[in-house]
Design a protein around this nucleic acid. Structure first.
Lengths: 335, 335
DNA sequence: GAAAGGCCTTGAAACCTTTCATTGAAACCT
DNA sequence: AGGTTTCAATGAAAGGTTTCAAGGCCTTTC
């Protein structure tokens, strides 16, 4: 360390920063002044090497450019930063190989904790990582392993709320837009099915699955074409997230279909713009910012004192937000 | 390094990773197998200590939860990740003290490069950081210092485009919503003024400034109240970004004002949802994803070979996107 | 058959911290 | 006055990696 320009041993200089009470006032002042003069900036890498803490938190999400994940990351960032940690952000982009690369990179950086929205759902691997010293919190993934932690919203419930809403309005033929390869897609799909069963309808006959290859507006527009061309055409559409719903909405507009008069549309997430679409989008609320905050806190508790939270698996209840994009189906006779 | 379990010196083990050609095939295989068995993960901190590269890129933006910055960060992430770097993301949140903290944290982590949207516009400090070894690229900030690099969109031009559009429609009294304490706010404001001057109108008399304390929908709604109450009431509104415009739109709806029949509204950014608002929002396009990619590339070139780009300051031209939220002002006699 | 040259491998130094046992000096106690 | 405690400061070790000069052995060359 260059701060021996203060004429003091390097051990003392270190103490000035880490245990100030161990060093006398005059020396401390001298060292601080020297640091000032030399523009000294501690090297976190070296510190990590010695004491094993990197003060880094890894975040691995599907797509930071997606508002849902953006907000979630924002919530986590605010909590982590206040606690003196900074965040490394990686995108998995729904690809397991990117996820793999990113996980490796984060491990190499010896992050203290990992906030991950898993693509490949390899909980064993995550447990291994945790044993290797990085605390893992699963995002939006309802694990139940006692060793891991998680923060999620009950997606089955959310799907059920959405479908029940359409059923209550009188819809009996509904399209489900989105990938079900990711767990929460599958859960929401399952919730939809459950609602149909509870209404005494066979999901296989009444729900049209429209798979998408990505969660983008472009894919949503493509899905709209499929829906418009379907025979019989569904009277309601449930999208696995709002971005997709936005694309579907555009596609439906392009096909001259009016929402909700001709067809009802439900999103999922309640991103900030949902309430101001044309028409305002009915959707299922998730509050990602709060999810991020909660996850970060769970993680920091684990890193900090290793204290045990009341519950390692926090589950939020989704809430149906009814706006103007859903209405009773058109009366058949009038078409 | 624990990989001497392969019965080889640690220097050799290191060579396996960094200069594989220097080590014989059988030894290499043996070492690789040992790494496999021991679940070896290189420690980037230690490497950084030795060779001075952290393979970290710091990103400091206003608010990662804002779609504009989210996309920008997404673009940068994709480029950086492919080049083997990972990103540390911090929010400055329009606060210079947070920015200060974050800059310090990033310096402590010895990031190789810094992508920053400056709040406190202390270019001297950034130059100092760059001399200390971290390449700096300014985001959305049109610096002209030859030592720094920057990627920006011409904001004066953007403001001018927006105002000229409203003027051409016949509006002569316009509100400008947003903070002008940040440079790009001021630039857009200046562009608006310039357009009025070119039309032979005194900006001071024809532009109503509605300052906001943050770039949120809530502040936008508040601004809408101010506009509605103004006398004479402006017939057109230019917002400094789309999020704010979204808030204004909600506020105007709440006050029973129709857009664009009663009042025209222009946003700025063209975030993904802008085209699907009610009504579709006319706005000025910025393409943040491309901005992020470009910035990351500029930075990686600087880090990598230190090669000199054709131009250290890249300036994109904004583009006016006319949708349905702007129309001629209402005819006075009809009110 | 010895010297020279190539190819692999080794060992040590350096990077910057933190930690901890040790020392020195001063103050306190009996 | 001698011994003990306290407070400050020191010096060395350790942590995981890269780099580099030096060494060992084998092959080639004359």
């Amino acid at each position: 360390m260059v701060a021996q320009r203060a004429g003091v041993s390097l051990g003392t200089a270190s103490n000035v920063l880490n245990r100030p009470h161990l060093v006398s006032d005059p020396t401390r002042a001298r060292v601080l002044r020297a640091m000032e003069e030399l523009d000294y900036v501690p090297n976190v890498g070296a510190r990590q090497l010695r004491q094993g803490r990197s003060h880094l938190i890894g975040v691995l999400v599907l797509d930071i450019a997606n508002p849902f994940w953006g907000e979630l990351v924002g919530g986590a960032e605010s909590v982590a930063f206040d606690a003196g940690h900074v965040m490394i952000v990686c995108n998995a982009g729904e690809s397991t190989v990117k996820e793999d690369f990113a996980l490796r990179a984060l491990a190499e950086h010896r992050v203290d904790g990992l906030l991950i929205a898993p693509v490949a759902e390899d909980e064993d691997r995550l447990e291994r990582l945790q044993r290797a010293g990085m605390q893992v919190v699963l995002l939006d993934y309802p694990s139940s392993r006692p060793t891991l932690r998680s923060v999620a919203v009950d997606d089955v419930r959310g799907g059920q709320l959405a479908a029940a809403h359409l059923l209550a309005l009188g819809h009996t033929r509904v399209a489900f837009v989105g990938s079900t390869t990711i767990h929460w897609g599958a859960d929401r799909r399952r919730g939809v099915g459950r609602a149909f069963e509870e209404a005494g309808l066979d999901p296989a006959a009444h729900v049209l699955e429209v798979p998408t290859s990505a969660l983008t507006t472009a894919e949503g527009e493509r899905a709209a074409e499929v829906i418009v061309a379907a025979d019989p055409r569904p009277t309601g559409v449930i999208c696995v997230n709002d971005v997709l719903a936005l694309g579907v909405l555009r596609g439906l507009h392009r096909s001259q279909l009016r929402v909700p008069q001709d067809i009802s549309l439900l999103g999922y997430d309640d991103v900030p713009f949902a309430g101001a679409l044309s028409p305002p989008l009915s959707t299922v609320q998730q509050l990602p910012f709060r999810l991020g905050e909660t996850a970060a806190r769970l993680m920091l508790d684990a890193i900090g004192d290793g204290s045990e939270p009341a519950d390692r698996h926090i589950r939020f209840e989704p809430e149906l937000i009814v706006r103007d994009s859903t209405a009773p189906p058109p009366v058949a006779g009038l078409r």
